Simulated assay, not measured.
Amino acid sequence: MAGARKQLAVVGAAVVLPTKDGSERTLFRNAPVDPEAYTAEGIKHAVKLVLVAEVTAKTEPDSDAGRGPSFTQADIDAAVKAAEDAKDAELADARKAVEEKAEEVAEAIKTLEAAKAEAEKPSTPAPKAPAPKQS
């Protein structure tokens, strides 16, 4: 009798997760992620990067037990959408940062041009005072 359950799994091509014993493991697409084996920080980071996600895993009859979890098209579509949304948000942040830096650079250019113009102004020497007469 087949059923379904929620679990964490690798939805990216691969992910390297830190284990609780201090080492690291590389997991590949569709591999289940056991929260007891990996650090919470590592899992949280992988979820943020959409390399790991909670999916509905179909549990297969014992004859298919060695195959690992199967994912529905809805799981895959949700993971792809999450990855695209994360990429779009990161791109928007990068664009904003570039625009802010461009404004800073434009302001610095104006300041430099003003300073250059001030430095290039012909300076009129102060009139010389007549030397005092010595007797």
Rank of each mutant, 00 (worst) to 15 (best):
A2Q: 11
A4C: 10
A4H: 10
A4N: 14
Q7W: 02
L8R: 04
A9I: 00
V10C: 02
V15T: 04
V15R: 00
L17Q: 01
K20A: 05
K20E: 08
K20D: 05
D21A: 15
G22S: 05
R25F: 04
R25I: 07
T26N: 14
F28L: 14
F28H: 15
R29E: 14
P32M: 10
P35Q: 06
E36Q: 15
G42N: 02
K44L: 12
H45E: 15
L51T: 05
L51K: 13
V52Q: 00
E54L: 06
T56Y: 08
P61Y: 05
P61K: 08
D62I: 12
D64M: 14
D64F: 11
G68W: 04
P69R: 04
S70C: 05
F71P: 03
T72E: 09
A74I: 10
A78V: 05
A79L: 02
A79P: 00
A82T: 04
E84F: 08
K87E: 10
A89S: 14
E90Y: 02
L91D: 14
A92V: 02
D93S: 12
A94K: 12
A94Y: 11
R95Q: 11
R95E: 05
R95I: 09
R95H: 06
K96M: 06
A97W: 00
V98C: 06
V98M: 09
E99W: 01
K101V: 03
K101P: 02
A102P: 02
E103N: 12
V105A: 05
V105G: 01
A106D: 06
L112R: 11
A115M: 07
A115V: 06
A115T: 06
K116Y: 08
A119K: 11
P125C: 00
P125L: 13
A126F: 06
A129G: 08
P130M: 00
A131K: 12
A131I: 03
K133R: 10
K133N: 08
K133L: 08
Q134F: 04
S135K: 13
S135C: 04
S135T: 08
